[in-house]
Computed example of a mutant assay.
Amino acid sequence: MQEAADSCGVSYTGLEQHLLYYHKELVKRRIKIREKALRNQRKGEITGRGTVHAPSRETADKYAEAVRLYSTTPMSAAQIAKKTGVSRKGFYEHLQRWHLDLICRRKNIPYEEGQPVDWSKVRKYNPATKAKYAEAIRRLKESGLPTARVAAEFGLQPEGFRSYLKEHEPELYARQGMVRTDTGGMVSRRSMEKYSEAIRLYATTTESVKSLARRFGFNDCPFRQFIKRNFPELVERHKELLRKEGIKDM
């Protein structure tokens, strides 16, 4: 009411008396609006004090360019504050109070105005890190190359790249742990590397699973199951080799 009185050049007391005497319904409506707005902290809406919850024009103008950069670039808040010449602390506080939606969008966590933010879901990496890995991820998806090879190609630290994939590209991360066989199946890359030479010999010679496992230094039971599960056609091929040589299948 004080703002309205000042804006119209009338006294606060006179305006108050005029409203109470001639505009009782308007006063009642105003009271109901303010009661409904108690504890309301939605930007741009009226609060229980009867004021609009929004930054002052001066404050909004001061941080306008910084907010624009924060919402449209991967630059950090500190970098933006330095670039636009505003206080880093002041900019942080401005974002926290008036642009929490932008912070949550950057951190990829749910946001609903007026509701508490679950900061436990804050992601580990910022947009600059996302940009850092973007091309390597695209290459990984298109090429099917091992993660370590792509990391080396882009000058990335392999373990750091894997950690990022595990958190932000879980499906791709899982896929990178697999390789496609000649028949189109998917098997563990690590197991394939471990058993590859033994599998080749199993498919082309009469040497038994137990003998191959002993020769290459691994347990024969997991090796046998790996072949049966992923290469049943090799089992039949091996049996055929044994039949031709007149050797009993063990």
Rank of each mutant, 00 (worst) to 15 (best):
H99Q: 08
P116E: 04
H99D: 08
K132S: 03
R106I: 00
K132V: 01
P116A: 06
E112W: 04
R123Y: 05
I137W: 08
P127S: 06
L102V: 05
E113R: 09
Y111I: 00
L95K: 07
Q115M: 10
K132M: 12
S120Q: 11
A136D: 12
L100A: 15
Q96Y: 02
T129S: 13
T129V: 14
C104G: 01
Q115E: 10
Q96K: 12
T129E: 12
V117I: 12
W98V: 06
Y125G: 09
K121T: 04
Q115C: 03
L95E: 06
W98D: 10
Y133T: 06
P116V: 02
Q115H: 07
C104S: 02
I103S: 05
R97A: 10
Q115D: 02
A128F: 03
P127T: 01
W119H: 02
I109R: 05
E135I: 04
H99N: 15
V122D: 05
K132I: 02
G114P: 02
A128P: 00
A128Y: 04
P116T: 04
N126T: 11
A131S: 11
Y133N: 07
W119D: 01
N126H: 09
R97K: 15
N126Q: 13
G114K: 07
E112P: 00
Y133H: 14
D101E: 13
S120E: 11
I109Y: 03
G114T: 07
V117G: 06
L100E: 14
W119F: 13
C104M: 02
I137P: 07
P116F: 03
Q115W: 01
A128W: 07
A136M: 13
T129C: 05
R106C: 04
E135P: 04
D101Y: 01
K124N: 11
W98Y: 08
L102Y: 05
Y133A: 09
Q96E: 10
C104R: 00
K124P: 00
E135A: 15
D101I: 00
L95A: 07
G114C: 03
